[in-house]
């Protein structure tokens, strides 16, 4: 009897403590979310932010290039989905929503439907916690993910969900969340590229890594718009060394003329101009190491 009572008491205490801790964490998280609008409204140059965000390329292009290079799918490069529940603050949720989004793009490019389901779930969970989960119909996405023939529909619905989420965040003046999602996605794309280049280097992929200097500059401009958000200042600071290394990359442009022809009603345009990326082996090595360090920090630092 005494033993049973003790167990019940201890269990109740643990349960109470757990609830308190959870409530405390949730309350803290909700409070942090509730302060976002003020942060964003105060210092966002909407025009500048819009210009920058619309200019950033999708990490999907890099994933496609990785596949074209002949590299095998590697799940070990991805952020493990069991990390999802570890993200308790809005900025970690946002960054890793972007990371998982980029991972999902990589998975989709390789038609890894089983993994896709797991990453869709993580995206949905983080989006829910950021109050933007209404843009992902998990039931439908899960059904589509079970059949490889549905991959196009699955991909479109996922994209559509992100687009609607973006619109919503814009309307609610939560642009700093969008910026953090974008940061996570961009960084994960760069991480995947550098990891593949490390083990299976090829000229095109290395050049694409060097070209990320352009996107990185835009990303930094975007983040600068939200400097009253301490979490974004921390991200900017963390990116400092990587930025210094990208600054050493040179991109040379050669002007040319365009010519065009009509093929089946489509205007096919050929440009004789070109760009060349100059990135030394040492720079590539440093960018690879710094990217890995920064990415691992952002997926694990709680």
């Amino acid at each position: 009897m005494f033993r049973t009572t003790t167990i019940l008491f201890v269990s109740t205490c643990i349960g109470f403590y757990a609830c308190q801790s959870k409530q405390s964490a949730e309350t803290k998280f909700q409070e942090s979310l509730d302060t976002l609008s003020a942060v964003t409204v105060a210092d966002t140059s909407e025009k500048t932010t819009g210009d920058v965000i619309s200019s950033l390329p999708s990490p999907l292009e890099i994933s496609s290039m990785i596949k074209e290079s002949g590299a095998d799918f590697s799940s070990s490069m991805l952020n493990p989905v069991n990390n999802t529940s570890k993200y308790t603050t809005y900025h970690m949720k946002a960054i890793n929503l972007g990371v998982f989004g980029a991972d999902l793009g990589y998975i989709n490019i390789y038609n890894q439907n089983k993994s896709a389901l797991e990453y869709i779930r993580s995206v949905k969970n983080l989006a829910d916690e950021l109050r933007v989960g209404q843009f992902f119909d998990f039931t439908t996405l899960a059904r589509l993910a079970k059949n490889a023939e549905n991959i196009d529909s699955l991909l479109y619905l996922t994209t559509s969900g992100f687009e609607k989420m973006d619109e919503f965040l814009k309307e609610k003046n939560r642009g700093n969340i969008s910026a953090l999602i974008l940061t996570g996605a961009w960084l994960e794309g760069l991480y995947l590229a550098t990891q593949v280049a490390k083990t299976k280097p090829n000229k095109e992929l290395i050049e694409r890594i060097g070209e990320q200097k352009i996107s990185f500059q835009d990303l930094m401009k975007l983040l600068e718009n939200f400097k009253s958000d301490q979490n974004i200042i921390n991200v900017i600071t963390s990116c400092g060394t990587l930025k210094n290394e990208f600054d050493k990359v040179e991109i040379e442009y050669k002007h040319g003329e365009t010519s065009s022809s009509e093929v089946d009603g489509v205007l096919v345009v050929v440009d004789s101009g070109s760009s060349t990326v100059k990135i030394a082996d040492e720079q590539l090595k440093n960018i690879t190491n710094l990217t890995e360090e920064l990415r691992n920090k952002l997926i694990t630092e709680i």
């Binding site: 999907l60 994209t159 989420m165 814009k170």
Partner: peptide, 24 residues
């Protein structure tokens, strides 16, 4: 008219993180 649209990801990504073809 420059767009003021914050298109993430997203569109980012975003938004444009994923390939989609043909529907919608």
């Amino acid at each position: 008219i420059k767009t003021n649209t914050i298109r993430l990801l997203l569109c980012l990504l975003t938004i444009s993180l994923f390939p989609a073809i043909g529907i919608g």
